[in-house]
């Protein structure tokens, strides 16, 4: 009986953590699908979201979720700006080029945060941090539940945007075939800018949702989250939003289960190992048809 409870407990934790991973991965896969850019700064965008929540909490005493009001538009605008200045000029270069450029952005963001806020880890304390919902003997952390809810909301919104608006249709067309999209009159440059903005916005939202849960350290947290996001999108199959959600859930499960039943010190290694195996033996992803779709 106790084993069943702990299994259920691990399952629910894995599911909810996986939901947050999914939200990080969705932005990354959207950017990859439309721009074919390997965005190495994605984790640092998440960290920027964390710091936004931290700053507004420190100065104005805002609840972290309230700072989404600032993080959303700021993330979108910064993303559009970054795309225009750094990525648009190199859009037709080999893929490594965009990886190195975003690696540069990642180093700049991480070290700028280090310079401004110092090296110690930051978090936001909220009153409901230690609260948990009891379902029988299984306890579900309220923060994780909220994070899961935000994820569901954001991904649902994204789905509606992609499938029921003209803008979403243009995004999907650009992802499928950039030249074809241009031929039917879509301004793909503008779409790429908007998609990068959207991706950064999603990453910052994930950061805000994560801050009561996780410590943010300027140069260390970003690359770890970037790696996790890559694991998520490669697990699912590159370039597809639905697959990223599934990939996030799988990664959450693999981590929690591996930590619980094999060895907790290697928690981060399970995801990476899984990632390598998928990359080498099933590069189209666990659920994959070929790439190309958003």
């Amino acid at each position: 009986m106790a084993e069943l409870v702990s299994l259920l407990q691990n399952l629910s934790n894995g599911l909810l953590i996986g939901g947050v991973y999914a939200m990080i991965g969705v932005g990354l896969t959207l950017i990859f699908g439309v721009m074919r850019t390997i965005n190495f700064a994605h984790g640092d965008f998440v960290v920027m979201g964390m710091y936004t929540a931290f700053v507004f909490n420190m100065i104005l005493g805002w609840d972290p979720y309230f700072s989404l009001l600032v993080a959303l538009p700021a993330g979108f605008l910064m993303g559009v700006l970054l795309e225009r200045v750094v990525l648009a000029p190199i859009v037709d270069k080999p893929h490594e080029t965009s990886l190195l450029a975003t690696l540069g952005i990642s180093l700049i963001i991480g070290n700028a945060l280090l310079l401004i806020f110092g090296g110690e880890s930051k978090s936001v304390h909220v009153d409901y941090a230690s609260m948990a919902l009891s379902l029988g003997e299984v306890k579900i952390s309220v923060i994780l539940l909220i994070a899961g809810g935000v994820t569901a909301l954001v991904i649902g919104g994204l789905y509606l945007l992609l499938h029921y608006t003209e803008f979403g249709r243009s995004i999907r067309a650009t992802a499928e075939n950039r030249l074809g999209a241009e031929l039917v009159g879509i301004n793909t440059r503008r779409i790429q800018g908007a998609v990068f903005g959207l991706g950064m916005m999603l990453a910052m939202t994930a950061g805000v949702a994560l801050i009561p849960l996780l410590f943010a350290t300027p140069t260390a947290t970003g690359p770890i989250l970037t790696l996790k996001a890559f694991v998520v999108i490669v697990l699912g199959g590159l370039g597809r939003v639905g697959a990223a959600v599934a990939g996030g859930l799988v990664l959450g499960m693999v981590e929690v289960m591996g930590a619980a039943y094999i060895a907790s010190a290697y928690r981060d290694a399970y995801g990476l190992l899984f990632f390598l195996i998928i990359l080498l033996f099933k590069p189209e992803g666990l659920f994959g048809r070929s790439v190309k779709r958003v």
Binding site: V86, L100, G104, L107, I108, N111, A112, T219
Partner: peptide
């Protein structure tokens, strides 16, 4: 002036190199 944040230089230089000296 940068203390531990000296990787900032790497970030700025790699962007400059990619954009202007590929």
């Amino acid at each position: 002036s940068f203390a531990e944040a000296n990787l900032l230089i790497y970030g700025i230089l790699i962007l400059l190199v990619i954009l202007f000296l590929p």
